[in-house]
Design a binder for these strands. Sequence first.
DNA 1: TCCGAGCGTCAAGGACGCGTCAAGAACGGC
DNA 2: GCCGTTCTTGACGCGTCCTTGACGCTCGGA
Lengths: 226, 226
Amino acid sequence: MTRLLVVEDDQALRRALAITLRARHYEVDTVGDGAAALRAAAATAYDLVVMDLGLPDLDGVEVIQGIRGWSAVPVIVLSAREAQWQKVDALDAGADDYVTKPFGMDELLARVRAALRRAEPAEGNSAPIVETPAFVIDLAAKRAHKDGREVRLTPTEWHLVEALVRRPGVLVPSTQLLAEVWGPHYERETNYLRVFFAQIRRKLEPDPGRPRYFITEPGLGYRFEP
Amino acid sequence: MTRLLVVEDDQALRRALAITLRARHYEVDTVGDGAAALRAAAATAYDLVVMDLGLPDLDGVEVIQGIRGWSAVPVIVLSAREAQWQKVDALDAGADDYVTKPFGMDELLARVRAALRRAEPAEGNSAPIVETPAFVIDLAAKRAHKDGREVRLTPTEWHLVEALVRRPGVLVPSTQLLAEVWGPHYERETNYLRVFFAQIRRKLEPDPGRPRYFITEPGLGYRFEP
DNA sequence: TCCGAGCGTCAAGGACGCGTCAAGAACGGC
DNA sequence: GCCGTTCTTGACGCGTCCTTGACGCTCGGA
């Protein structure tokens, strides 16, 4: 399911957007101000953010920059502001697209599709099935098998496994893993990583005491070794 | 150098676009019709295409579909057509963005930057791999190999190696290395450098006693000789 | 020839990060 | 409201990495 976050202070428009998008089978959360937007984006891994630039608390550009600090999620900006420099500012802050109110719903939907289409290959181009002599991971189906037996992973364990397995052989810094799985405020909680990797190794590694696939690089981060 | 293809039948606008984009240090090719656009896109690996929808020979949507048949290059569509369904068609055909004429040049440039920024990580712009006859260093994956064997570097060793290898051949003053790796208060602790470079040479140099790649310039600093 | 500054080497200590375990808190399903 | 799962939090032992000091070497100048 594709998850969208709608950030819009005008209640009527917020409802209209949510209804229209849900009718297209997107899963939609809505918030009404910038602080809530940042909290929501930190708590949940959305596939796309639709955001009004005129928010009551924060400037839209600040919200974009806040999100861009740790996430590459596509952001489509809605705005009644016509001035060029505002579009330029928003786009340079990290927005992916800028739609001027009043806008046609069909156009917005097309831009949502375009943004999602672009983001797709970046995330899922490498095979959604990862296979090693010890275990098989199907990222699309969210299933893992070890020695033919199905292994159950909790949501957080999946999130971690995915973050590593998506870039085989590459070292992923602890801070990046924490930001990606728990959110930007958890970058110091390295003990989470220790606890969860212990669990993941117990479930997937042939010899959990001596990891072969989920490798710790002391002081740096973790690495998935295919 | 970033390479752009401009597809526009109006000669005046084509020239204006080319001049503006070149002033921003993009490398720009221009063509005047759809057939030439397809030929050019096939012949050269452009980083982005800016395309007018109203072309004399082919419909712009067909050109987009033609390009999308084999390339994922970002496409920004320009058009005087206001109707929503035309935007929807172009976006669904694979366009990344749709700008309605008349448009502001600053806005177009911002959208160009946004599109290029998105495409960047997928292509892997700068080569983070440093190769010498004796060893290979992959800065992105944080891996080092010597004679085919993997060599493990500690966090501080990585930091130092990176600081030097990023600027091949140039002499980096000791104070700068110390400030960059340990912080500004450590600029006098040159013994740190001696200890760690001894370690790094032991791990990477063919003959650690007589360094060939990590060179000391007495009294000045250190240099990486590729 | 002697001397000193700067560099390379080595080894010991202490600090830090990691793996492990377990218990309490939050969450969701019934 | 209860129960099982999942997440959070704390404590402890251990290994690795960083820091620090001592010593020998080379090279240039007195």
